[in-house]
């Protein structure tokens, strides 16, 4: 039986198309979860896609966190359910305090859309365990508010806890430099592209692995992330409870 993964649809979501495609490529059955409903329809994992939820005129994700579906997503996460937020979904998860840090306007204050390279800091999480040694991973970014920010103490703690999941890297796989390095597309602190919560069941990243799942689109490097998530959700469902790769 194929595993059912919820894709939350806010008014203004637009990478739901990409997310649905990627889940299908990864062998899962996508289930659309409408923003003003609280029923999660028995899904095994939840993906918050990219886009501009509710228009994002005030600040990315700030309205979406108050939507009915997000109450259900928070409860799902509190029960150990797997939640992956991509781009706008990542922004919503930080606004909802399901993930640490904040995503600020890009360095240069402009929208940035181009291919980047990232590498997983850990290959023992539900979102990265199938990546193996494949690095760096090529995939697009497309956002205006993607500069990861937290105070130094929080950053140190995230590093110590192993909560930095993805970092922007150069072609040779070495980590991007600080905010001025073009390899770091948005000026994220410590070149952080994605993080995971302390419990290890909620993750978010700014780049788009769900758009890089087929070679014809220029890269299928993102498939490993989506496939890890789908396989973990299936395992979770079989075990009828959280199966987590614990944080360090």
């Amino acid at each position: 039986m194929t595993v059912r993964i919820g894709v939350v649809l806010f008014p203004g979501s637009n990478r739901d198309i990409d997310a649905v495609n990627a889940l299908e490529v990864a062998g899962a059955e996508p289930v659309i979860l409408w923003h003003d409903e609280v029923a999660l329809d028995g899904v095994a994992g939840i993906l918050l896609p990219g886009g501009f939820a509710y228009g994002d005129y005030l600040r990315a994700g700030v309205i979406a966190r108050f939507s009915p579906v997000m109450r259900a997503v928070s409860a799902f996460a509190a029960d150990g359910g797997l939640v992956l937020g991509i781009c706008n979904g990542f922004q919503v998860l930080t606004e909802a305090h399901l993930l640490p840090g904040a995503l600020l306007r890009n360095r240069g204050l402009r929208f940035v859309s181009r291919e980047v390279r990232i590498a997983a800091e850990r290959s023992d999480t539900p979102f990265s365990h199938l990546l193996g040694e494949r690095r760096p991973l090529r995939m697009p970014v497309a956002h205006g508010e993607g500069a990861f920010f937290a105070d130094d103490a929080t950053l140190d703690q995230l590093e110590a806890n192993g909560q930095v999941l993805f970092r922007y890297v150069r072609a040779d796989g070495s980590p991007a430099g600080g905010e001025e390095d073009r390899v770091n597309p948005n000026g994220s602190l410590r070149a952080i592209a994605g993080v995971i919560n302390a419990a290890g069941n909620v993750a978010g990243l700014m780049p788009h692995p769900e758009t890089a799942v087929e070679a014809v689109l220029g890269s299928d490097d993102g498939l490993g992330i989506i496939a890890s998530f789908v396989a973990s959700a299936a395992e979770h469902e079989r075990a009828d409870g959280p199966v987590l790769v614990g944080t360090r």
């Binding site: 637009n14 990478r15 198309i17 990409d18 495609n21 990627a22 990219g50 402009r110 929208f111 940035v112 859309s113 181009r114 697009p140 497309a142 788009h208 769900e210 758009t211 799942v213 087929e214 014809v216 689109l217 220029g218």
Partner: peptide
């Protein structure tokens, strides 16, 4: 033209070859 077109999302919908 990359300084300009990098300000446009060119990949959404996962069809851009």
């Amino acid at each position: 033209r990359h300084p300009v077109f990098e300000q446009y999302d060119s990949t959404v919908q996962a069809n851009t070859v």
